[in-house]
Simulated assay, not measured.
Amino acid sequence: MARVGLTTEGLIRAGAETADEIGFERTTPTELARRFGVRTASLYSHVKNAHELKTGIALFALAELADLASEAVAGRAGKDALTAFANVYRDYAREHPGRFAATQFPLDAEAAASSAGGRHAQMSRAILRGYRLAEPHQTHAVRLLGSVFSGFVGLEASGGFSHSAPDSQESWTEILDALDVLLRTWPTTS
């Protein structure tokens, strides 16, 4: 029987908060059971195993990030939209490092299909329509943006920029300026 007050949604939310505190990789059913003051077996009426818990946290984080990004880019276009979109990812990674790590968790096909991942791609494509990129160039640009955002955020979070000048904010601003120029002048011939 499930413990009164313990729900799958509450467990996933607690998992997301725990991931931010101790890291996504260290967030397990055992750790959550300890925090809830229950036996680990009590959680298995809500999640089957650690993989399902991590999948739930990933889906939660992807939806939360998509909501924030959607709000940030609403009514914006071109470089303004690109900058708002990029800043949401960077800010989210800074404020919620465990949740951001969860957004990188490999999802199976069924979970991926039900995730907010499609919303992220749609927002990227909407931003890129302002740059007049047609396929297959648009797909290449979506992949570039994801790589740049994830790579920069990962290096910044690991302290990769903390021992050299200029500071990471200056680099971030210049990178976004360069991306804007690249997207406006994207080579469309092979």
Results as ranks from 00 to 15, higher is better:
145 L>V: 09
63 A>N: 10
140 H>S: 10
47 V>Q: 04
22 I>M: 05
118 G>E: 13
36 F>D: 06
42 S>G: 08
32 L>K: 04
91 D>G: 11
64 E>Q: 09
93 A>G: 15
37 G>Y: 08
114 S>F: 07
74 A>V: 05
146 G>Y: 05
129 R>T: 12
137 H>C: 03
90 R>G: 04
8 T>G: 08
117 G>A: 09
12 I>T: 01
124 S>R: 04
38 V>C: 08
51 H>A: 11
26 R>Y: 01
151 G>N: 10
51 H>R: 13
106 P>T: 09
97 P>H: 12
31 E>M: 07
36 F>T: 07
104 Q>L: 14
125 R>W: 00
154 G>W: 11
48 K>T: 10
123 M>W: 00
91 D>Q: 13
77 A>R: 07
131 Y>P: 04
76 R>W: 02
68 L>I: 02
76 R>H: 05
85 F>E: 03
83 T>R: 13
92 Y>V: 06
23 G>N: 14
134 A>K: 10
153 V>H: 05
68 L>P: 02
66 A>T: 04
32 L>C: 04
113 A>W: 10
14 A>G: 00
105 F>K: 06
20 D>P: 15
109 A>F: 03
10 G>A: 01
92 Y>W: 09
126 A>V: 01
155 L>T: 15
147 S>D: 11
52 E>N: 14
82 L>E: 09
55 T>K: 05
108 D>A: 09
133 L>A: 04
114 S>G: 14
39 R>H: 12
53 L>K: 03
72 A>C: 01
113 A>N: 12
62 L>N: 01
48 K>S: 14
12 I>S: 00
55 T>S: 06
129 R>E: 14
111 A>D: 12
113 A>T: 11
139 T>A: 15
65 L>I: 05
63 A>F: 02
149 F>H: 12
30 T>C: 07
81 A>P: 01
103 T>P: 00
26 R>E: 07
73 V>I: 15
41 A>H: 13
123 M>S: 02
40 T>N: 15
103 T>Q: 02
62 L>D: 00
129 R>N: 14
119 R>A: 15
23 G>M: 11
96 H>D: 07
132 R>E: 15
96 H>A: 06
21 E>A: 10
140 H>K: 08
118 G>C: 11
38 V>M: 05
119 R>F: 00
117 G>Q: 06
